[in-house]
Every structure is written in C-alpha cells, then in structure tokens.
Computed example of a mutant assay.
Amino acid sequence: MRTFLAILPAAAVVLACGAGDSPTSPHVDLPGTAPTSPHVDLPGTAAPVTEIRTSGAPPPAPARASYSDFTEPARLVIRSQEEWASAWALIQGSAAASPLPPVDFGADMVVVAATGTRRSGGYDIIIPDAALDAGTLRVGVVETTPGSSCAVETVLTSPVAAARVPRHDGPVEFVDETVAVACQ
C-alpha cells in the first residue's frame, strides 16, 4: 500500500504534463499564451491539407500514431493505392488494424511524416500546411519535443502523421520545424 501511495503523486505529474502532448492534440500549448495552431511559413499559394482520419466509430480518429512501425525518420509522398496500403500498415503498427482510408489518387495524394523511434513519450508530429511555389509543392511538418522540465513516459515511441493534399506530379519538398514544449 505504501508503494502505491508513493507512486501516485509521480503518476499525477506525468499525466498532468503529458496532457498537452497527446498525439491527437491539434495545437501546441506554450506557457503564458493562448493555444495556437502550429504552422510553417511557406512561400507560394496555400494548398489544402486534410488530416487523414480512420473510418472508425464517429468521430473518426486522426491517422496519427505514437506507436507506428516507422523506426527511422521518414517523409513520404504517396501517389498510388499500393504505396498507400504499404504505408498504412506501417502507420497502424501493431495496433488493431483500421481499414485503409479511401483516397482518390486521381485528384489527391498522401504525404506522411514520421519521427522514427524516440526514447520517451512527449513527442508528436503533424502536417499543418502545404503551398505550391514555382512548380514545387512544399509541405510543412511540425515536430514537437518535450522540454527539459517535462515529465514523460519512459517508453519507446515512433510518432507519425498522414495527410491528404491535392495531387502534384512535380517535385515535393518537406519543410520541417521543431518546437520544444515547455512544462512547469
């Protein structure tokens, strides 16, 4: 019983600090500011970015995962159903498989960003922006990392995000930004 009571406060700290670092959190909370949606300043004409969602019970969950099978950092441009099926298997990892979300590859393509394996919780990755500039589609990627004062789970994670963007058969460039989340 004493051991349980000693662990309880530490667990509460981990849960409190990790609450804003959820892999489904759509924004980065910075201390002393209102929640904002992270974005990457990209030159050119903005292109719509639609986060891919699973087809589960409403509302569908984002196709973002902390425990994917992407063990190395990756940036993928997917323009075919076959490539999408292979990437989806890695996104799902060993979790219960969700059906492959439909994508009309005549009109759209999928971009995927993965961090690779991380040694703790508190990491996240999103694809918030895309823009077409001089024939190149630039895709913004924001990776969040836990700040030095954050209490995080000691567990291997491998965050990944997938988004649908308008099909572009020309060059695609990923523009990465990293944001450290500050914890009290």
Results as ranks from 00 to 15, higher is better:
residue 112 V to R: 11
residue 172 V to R: 05
residue 159 P to M: 14
residue 77 V to D: 05
residue 160 V to G: 03
residue 120 S to P: 11
residue 33 T to D: 06
residue 141 V to S: 02
residue 178 T to D: 03
residue 108 D to I: 13
residue 154 T to Y: 06
residue 58 P to I: 08
residue 177 E to S: 13
residue 67 Y to R: 12
residue 43 P to H: 07
residue 29 D to Y: 06
residue 157 T to P: 02
residue 181 V to N: 02
residue 84 W to P: 08
residue 103 V to W: 08
residue 4 F to P: 00
residue 32 G to I: 05
residue 73 P to S: 14
residue 153 E to I: 08
residue 98 S to Y: 15
residue 99 P to N: 07
residue 153 E to M: 14
residue 168 H to F: 06
residue 90 L to P: 10
residue 55 S to I: 05
residue 21 D to E: 10
residue 79 R to T: 12
residue 56 G to M: 04
residue 118 R to D: 05
residue 65 A to R: 09
residue 40 V to N: 09
residue 172 V to A: 00
residue 48 P to C: 03
residue 168 H to N: 01
residue 128 P to L: 08
residue 120 S to T: 15
residue 22 S to G: 02
residue 144 T to S: 04
residue 168 H to D: 03
residue 13 V to W: 00
residue 138 R to E: 15
residue 66 S to W: 01
residue 130 A to H: 13
residue 54 T to N: 14
residue 121 G to F: 15
residue 49 V to Y: 04
residue 75 R to S: 12
residue 96 A to M: 13
residue 22 S to Q: 06
residue 4 F to R: 09
residue 153 E to N: 11
residue 126 I to Q: 09
residue 21 D to V: 07
residue 72 E to V: 15
residue 51 E to T: 12
residue 40 V to H: 15
residue 93 G to Y: 13
residue 67 Y to I: 02
residue 30 L to W: 12
residue 175 V to F: 06
residue 108 D to T: 12
residue 173 E to C: 02
residue 7 I to K: 00
residue 37 S to H: 10
residue 30 L to S: 04
residue 52 I to L: 07
residue 6 A to G: 05
residue 27 H to N: 11
residue 25 S to Q: 12
residue 113 A to H: 14
residue 57 A to R: 14
residue 79 R to E: 06
residue 28 V to T: 11
residue 81 Q to V: 15
residue 102 P to C: 13
residue 87 A to H: 00
residue 18 G to C: 03
residue 37 S to F: 05
residue 12 A to G: 03
residue 175 V to Y: 01
residue 153 E to Y: 14
residue 33 T to S: 05
residue 19 A to D: 01
residue 112 V to I: 10
residue 102 P to W: 12
residue 124 D to H: 10
residue 65 A to S: 14
residue 103 V to D: 02
residue 146 P to F: 04
residue 92 Q to K: 11
residue 42 L to V: 01
residue 147 G to V: 01
residue 176 D to G: 08
residue 123 Y to G: 11
residue 83 E to A: 11
residue 41 D to G: 03
residue 105 F to R: 12
residue 7 I to L: 08
residue 148 S to M: 03
residue 91 I to L: 09
residue 39 H to A: 15
residue 165 V to M: 01
residue 22 S to W: 01
residue 56 G to A: 09
residue 27 H to A: 07
residue 116 G to T: 13
residue 50 T to N: 06
